[in-house]
Design a protein around this nucleic acid. Structure first.
Lengths: 229, 229
DNA sequence: CGTATGGTTGAGGTAATTCAACCTGTGTGG
DNA sequence: CCACACAGGTTGAATTACCTCAACCATACG
């Protein structure tokens, strides 16, 4: 059942397609369709031909890489209004997997590409998004190199706190981690045990309070930022 | 002395502006100018207002981040035909510094932005480049996490070998490293000593031969790739 | 009640860092 | 021409931090 009703879309003002005029968007919407993925389901698999792309409207996705030994590394989290899909490569390069029940707005790449050609504003919106993703990826690189486990965990907590907050300028004080310990570990390039120990340490040092396994409350963001430096 | 002669430009077929028609490009060229930076000179500094952007025509740049302790992390190398400049942020986010004598083709961001608006092909070319940069950054993240020093050094050698080769499909066997040991270290998130030891080990194991401090000859790319896995 | 999944905690091993000394080539000044 | 300083690079010994392996705990679910 193709066709999408944008008027009820949660990300209608923030996704790339928000750059289109209502009638232009409506025309694009007729070419797309919604799809729901349960936690753990694969949205795109590395190596597949690149023939679709999508905007995430609800939920959470991960972009991840599996090395030859089967170890996974999460390269990026995709939040609602994020765009997924290879832009110019014939093959999908990384797996995209749902971390929570997620709804995506899917388009055939050919249709989307035509829309990009036809609507320069859409190309610019995607460019803006790609630039933002690039910045995020580089922030991750900066977080990774020569940094202690404590710094990485602190940095990730702060970034998740911002992602969990509705406001762009300050992060949420109390929120639920969107992922389990194992996923935190592959996101940080650490082991589950190390992450767990760091959480214990942060709680013991009074920077953090845990509410169950997923809930966290940041008690001293200043010191967290100092740690993450 | 503004104005650039694109007909003698080394990257006229590969840079983003190659997507423009000759007359369109000529119009853009009249708004830009060349600038040469010596090794160590800063092209853009983090925190500066974002008012210019540039295409690298010759040489090598690094994009790097300095943390509070002054430790540097190289986030990316920029090779000729690469584009540098913040696309949509009012502030420059990372330092851009010349690693070798470099020539860049500089534009006021306002002029370039106008060109993007006017020429959709330019926006698409930049989008393509941003997507490529994003992929490179994510490859770096994949290389970083939970990987041994040997794997990182091997991975970097292979990637530098490809960058040094004129052909896109296979890397150079013998080439000069574009950076010194310290820069290799900050590129990899390791210490100078560790990088040095890894080079020694690779040579001892017959994967590599060193010619002076910068020259390297890859003797067994298959095993290097295996190491980097 | 038993099992599975996710999480925490502990002991021991290992790889990279730190600190330090030493080497090598280059340029400078006596 | 030699002495010297200096920067970049290598090598060694000791330390540290994370990983590995293993046991144990908590919660959810059939």
């Amino acid at each position: 059942m193709p066709g999408i009703d944008c008027s009820v879309c949660a990300v209608r003002d923030s996704a790339a397609c928000a750059s289109l005029r209502p009638d232009e968007r409506a025309a694009l919407a007729r070419l797309g369709h919604h799809r729901v993925y349960e936690r753990g389901e694969t949205v795109f698999a590395a190596g597949d031909p690149q023939d679709v792309c999508a905007t995430l409207t609800q939920g959470l996705l991960k972009v991840s890489h599996h090395d030859e030994q089967g170890h996974e590394r999460i390269l990026s989290l995709v939040h609602p209004s994020g765009f997924v899909g290879e832009l110019f490569s014939p093959l999908i390069r990384h797996d995209v997997i749902a971390l929570a029940r997620s709804t995506v707005c899917v388009f055939a790449w050919a249709d989307y590409e035509a829309a990009i050609e036809q609507h320069p504003a859409l190309a610019r919106a995607l460019l803006r998004r790609a630039a933002e993703d690039l910045y995020t990826a580089r922030a991750q690189i900066a977080l990774d190199g020569r940094r202690s486990a404590a710094a990485r965990v602190a940095g990730l907590l702060l970034s998740l706190s911002h992602a969990a907050s509705p406001s762009p300028c300050h992060g949420a004080v109390q929120f639920d981690l969107p992922v389990n310990r194992g996923e935190l570990a592959t996101l940080l390039g650490l082991t589950i045990e190390t992450v767990s120990r760091q959480f214990g340490r942060l709680e013991r040092d009074g920077l953090l309070r845990r509410h169950g396994t997923r809930g966290v409350e940041l008690l001293d963001t200043a010191r967290l930022e100092q740690l993450a430096a």
